[in-house]
Amino acid sequence: MTDTTNGMTDTEAGTPEPVIRLSGVRAELGSRPVLRGIDLTVSRGEVVALLGANGSGKSTAVRSIIGQVPVSAGEIELFGTPRRRFRDWARVGYVPQRTTAAGGVPATVTEVVTAGRLSRARFGILRKADHAAVRRALELVRMADRAKDPVDALSGGQHQRVLIARALAAEPELLIMDEPMAGVDLASQEVLAETLREQVAGGATVLLVLHELGPLEPLIDRAVVLRDGCVLHDGPPPKAVGQHALPGHDHVHPHAPAGAGPIRTGLLS
């Protein structure tokens, strides 16, 4: 039933070395199918946006890639290795959808970001180079001056920058981000876009879940649109036009009714 998309992913076959490869991935939450056979390939150096309305399965798709959601059928590969046998997690930086700001105990920005370096630290022992990497990650998101502040004192945008620094602390080749722009003020959005630009310029591969393209639009090579757990569109990102194309435009609008045209799943209007 999703075979219509196969032709599109096959056109990517000419690109070498897929970093992420999903084929025919199905997943259920309870008895409800959330992914109904997803094919998705992200090649080295690509920036791919995963778009779709709420409940379209985009978060479930990325969480299946990191092994957080059990998959009932299909294959997932990371860097050419089946995910079940993949152990090289230092190559992957993950930014979860923003949840609670902190745990039940206070923790500083540095403590949280240091947790992201553990994938490079043997037995959790941090060396000078590891602390330097943590500092660098904080500088990248321009949070170095808040290093000793408790995370629960930060704004939503600053907190998001800390979570991205945590993912960058391991100096990953692949960044997976789940709605990094959700609830983030414009100033932080600019910082995030700039950080991402630097990462992409440095050769990073990026898979982003986005609700809309927003300020990241110029960075995105390819957009994959999901609807009801199926890939609806896989190709160049839809171009923003008119007022939507203005830099810094914050795209806020009520969503199209459920019966609207197929490619308009909350992404374009």
Partner: peptide, 21 residues
């Protein structure tokens, strides 16, 4: 001895899994 690992897991299990813990 395992304070860094336990801190990471207690703070965010999902992220800890992606760091390979």
């Amino acid at each position: 001895g395992l304070r860094r690992q336990l801190f990471a897991v207690s703070l965010d299990e999902e992220f800890a899994r992606v760091t390979g813990l």
